[in-house]
Simulated assay, not measured.
Amino acid sequence: MTRYEILVATDGSDYAKKAEIAGMKITKSYNIRMAAIYVAVGRKDSEREELVAKGEEVLNHVVETGAQMGVDVQKILVGVSMQRMPKMGALADTVARAILDAAEKYKVHTIVLGGRGESEINPELGNVAEAVVRKAKCTVLVAR
């Protein structure tokens, strides 16, 4: 199995784009391997499919940006169905768990993600970023 030293979690938001650039600069500086992950969580299959299509677009943009910077970026697209959200924050926990699972699977050294996502409300640190920071077994870099 391929190992990635850098895993950039993205949702296409402005903060995620900052994380993407930071991850690419680190990757290029150290001549290491990088992957970008997009997690599509939908309550219905149709909603998840739309988010998966958006995820493909976002990841293709990351790959193109990486190519312009001389960085080879691998794509990881995860689709998750949640028929119901049992409690507040379940969506953020689900996305964070998918990121952490990928980090463990690919033996990632550093997770890079934005401080807030496209739907985050918390002005200090987004719910996904906070969950990843709290639970990660590796280094986490939060871009703001």
Results as ranks from 00 to 15, higher is better:
Gly79Gln: 03
Gln74Leu: 10
Ala40Gly: 04
Arg134Val: 08
Lys44Ala: 11
Thr2Trp: 12
Asn122Trp: 10
Val140Ala: 00
Met1Ala: 12
Met85Gly: 10
Thr10Val: 09
Leu125Glu: 05
Ala40Ser: 10
Asp101Thr: 08
Asn31Thr: 11
Lys135Glu: 15
Thr94Gln: 09
Glu56Tyr: 10
Leu113Lys: 00
Gly79Phe: 02
Ile121Thr: 14
Glu49Val: 10
Tyr38Met: 06
Glu5Gln: 12
Ile76His: 04
Cys138Gln: 09
Thr139His: 13
Val108Leu: 04
Gly70Ala: 07
Val132Glu: 06
Thr10Cys: 05
Lys87Ser: 15
Leu7Ala: 00
Glu47Phe: 06
Glu47Leu: 09
Ser119Leu: 13
Thr65Gly: 09
Lys107Asp: 15
Lys18Trp: 08
Lys44Ile: 08
Gly126Met: 03
Val128Thr: 11
Leu91Ala: 09
Tyr15Asn: 12
Val108Ser: 01
Met82Lys: 11
Val63Cys: 06
Glu50Val: 06
Ser119Trp: 14
Asp45Phe: 12
Ala19Glu: 05
Ala98Tyr: 02
Val63Gly: 03
Gln68Pro: 02
Val41Cys: 08
Val108Asp: 01
Ala102Val: 01
Leu113His: 02
Lys75Thr: 11
Leu91Gly: 01
Tyr38Thr: 05
Ile32Leu: 09
Val63Pro: 01
Gln74Arg: 12
Val62Tyr: 04
Glu50Asn: 13
Arg43Tyr: 14
